[in-house]
């Protein structure tokens, strides 16, 4: 199963994808990668500088929205792109993340578009019969 499937849906101006993973942590990591796939290509972004953060939320969906929003905020304020993520999820929807990337270099990363925000549109984390986690996410471009 491909971990990320980009959805080309009709006339959407946004970036819609579906992520699959065996664990919640891996699901979040795939979603994090998708933010930077929308902007550039992961193979062009070297994982050199780590940035760490912690989050708490009231539900898994809120935690994922918060996680993606934090990565978008770090992209704008640290002027960095990320390609590698270490994620730990514990207790009542608490998350630790170490995102590793490098400063934006237009020649190297050839960014095609910016990501403005994560959205809650149809955001629902599901687990299928084989125990795989699945989520569909829309990023506002």
């Amino acid at each position: 199963m491909t971990p990320i499937r980009v959805i080309e849906d009709g006339a959407s101006a946004d970036f819609e994808f579906e992520a699959f993973a065996e664990s919640l942590e891996s699901l979040f990591i795939e979603c994090g990668k998708a933010v930077f796939i929308a902007i550039s290509e992961l193979r062009l972004i070297e994982s050199k500088i780590p940035v760490e953060f912690n989050l708490n939320a009231d539900s898994l969906e809120d935690l994922l929205f918060g996680f993606l929003s934090e990565l978008i905020y770090l992209k704008d304020t640290k002027k960095m792109l990320f390609s590698k993520f270490i994620v730990e999820i514990s207790g009542n929807y608490s998350l630790y993340c170490k995102a590793i990337g490098e400063p934006i270099d237009r020649d190297k990363h050839q960014p095609k578009i910016d990501v403005k925000a994560a959205t809650y549109h149809k955001l629902k984390i599901e687990i299928n019969d084989s125990g795989y986690y699945r989520v569909r996410v829309i990023l506002d471009l």
Partner: peptide
């Protein structure tokens, strides 16, 4: 720009509560 995008994000989160 990012200023408005962040305000939208912040309040979308807090309006859930």
């Amino acid at each position: 720009r990012g200023f408005g995008h962040q305000i939208g994000t912040d309040y979308l989160q807090s309006f859930g509560q």
